[in-house]
Design a binder for these strands. Sequence first.
DNA 1: CTGAAAGCGCTAACAG
DNA 2: CTGTTAGCGCTTTCAG
Lengths: 336, 336
Amino acid sequence: MASASVKDVAALAQVSVGTVSNVLNRPDIVSPETVERVQLAMEKLSYVRNEAARQLRLGHSQAIGLISFSGANPFFTDMAAAAENTASEAGYEVIIGNSNERSEREAGYLNLFEELRVRGVLLSPVGDVAPRLRRMRERDIPVVLVDRESSDSSFSSVSVDDVAGGALATQHLIDTGRTRLLFVGGPAGIQQVGDRLAGARSVVDQHPGVTLEVLFGESLTVFEGRRIGRIVADRAPADRPDAVFAANDLLAIGLLQSLFIDGKPAVPDQIALVGYDDILFAEASVVPLTSVRQPSRLIGETAVQILLEEADDRSLEPRHIRYQPELVVRESTTPR
Amino acid sequence: MASASVKDVAALAQVSVGTVSNVLNRPDIVSPETVERVQLAMEKLSYVRNEAARQLRLGHSQAIGLISFSGANPFFTDMAAAAENTASEAGYEVIIGNSNERSEREAGYLNLFEELRVRGVLLSPVGDVAPRLRRMRERDIPVVLVDRESSDSSFSSVSVDDVAGGALATQHLIDTGRTRLLFVGGPAGIQQVGDRLAGARSVVDQHPGVTLEVLFGESLTVFEGRRIGRIVADRAPADRPDAVFAANDLLAIGLLQSLFIDGKPAVPDQIALVGYDDILFAEASVVPLTSVRQPSRLIGETAVQILLEEADDRSLEPRHIRYQPELVVRESTTPR
DNA sequence: CTGAAAGCGCTAACAG
DNA sequence: CTGTTAGCGCTTTCAG
């Protein structure tokens, strides 16, 4: 049996297709009896609306495209979940594509989203997207930049102040009496990591007795954290830092697992440890981890709101929202 | 500027829309010069095909719906990723919905998938889906059951032998000299957990000297594992098991974190520990975890293949594929 | 090999 | 309040 269409419903309910459409989209302008009769017919035929036809007629879909650059990062998962909720309340769904930091995959999804005629896209740009963005603009597809600011600021953006976050973590370490700090980052070139480091530097520079060493790993993963931790643990005592600031929690958790000195955990007594993102595992790890929390859910919600407003009114000026991170103190930075 | 359509392309290339469509779908039957001329025109207008229109004409979309029952479970994430790859090679995309074990959400996604006229759906059923499945069948939408077998076996399924997995883990514990076993499960009613326990029981029953205690937690999470671990660690030595089989790795990792006896880790010397799923964290945890690995990627690939075959030929008999799990031995079960 | 034309299911404008 | 109708962009016969 093929799916029933509005025509079939109309025939069974003895009304016209226009009325069926009205029952679907503006039930208030249809008389109650008619509404009921039509709904009964729909049920009888187990009618389901054909989204493709609707979309074709409307000119755009009821979907928002979201391109994240790391599917494994809980920060993004959270943000995406919040975006989905907000969008869903407004009758939209969110389609997610993971670029995994590859600019060709980013381009691929941008393309797919265009074919799908999405209502707008939420993007954490990786490569040089300026030309693509220009095209989106020509097409009247609104774009909101997430977690990274646009270079030309002609697109709205929702981000978090990573410089402030880096400063927050560093100030806390110094406040708890640490003086030989180590920053552990991911591959150079990730803007967020650079910003967090810049924040750390600015604070260290104001404290004459404090030093800051920097170590860049290959990736922001638990494995890499373990590897770096082992290197640090193997150093001579005088060369070891007394505090480590990891660019994200995955890295920090890896460090935590391998920072053992003379067979005993070095955190927090010998080495204080701060992570970034405050993922669920941060609280659940062997030594609960102090971390810098980003308002991931709020970011997702705000980004969708702005996007939908711009979709409704293409003449809106771009807006730039920047949230402040927050320090969550746990045992991994307990003062000696 | 509105998006260019086949009409615009046809006009610019001085051909008919039919030819443009042919260039798009069967370029081989069009003369090379014409193809080139049309492609040039497409580029000039930066034409992108309208999926909605295409879909309307074709009668179905190029998407497969996937309903998983836990977005946080790495087993599903892996399976979904494999499904996406396989689907993508065949020109399909996968739309994912998380039911989170809630049957009304499951119904919601099933509905959405119908509206979207998906080519088929991959489903790990939660509630009583029999009536819905019947409807899908009437609509000629193929369904493949994943990780759970259908009660009436009239739908194809791809699953893993959880009874065998439970037996595998248990046999290994006994082989390494353990005799007082404890099974830690999640909420009753989850079929997989029940099957793993049944497997464990069957092996224990064949070994007279071995006992099996069973503890059911509230959920299959790290937190719950930590809670249960603390309870076990606090028992009198004589009451403590010498081996624990956890129904999944999250639980096992929680247990690992809290199974400390006299301030020292109890695993693996005093208590051997086996998990299930072999998630990434299993290898990366403080004591690398022995675990039962499911061929998650293979499941995703197979399920998509079967689905697509059935979509092409609705007269195919349902097939039932059942994979065998595999034991991955690591330090958490090192013999004393 | 190419062109013309029908029609997929829906919504919105307009007429009654 | 309800009915009629045009047309969204595409693919696919069917003729040429």
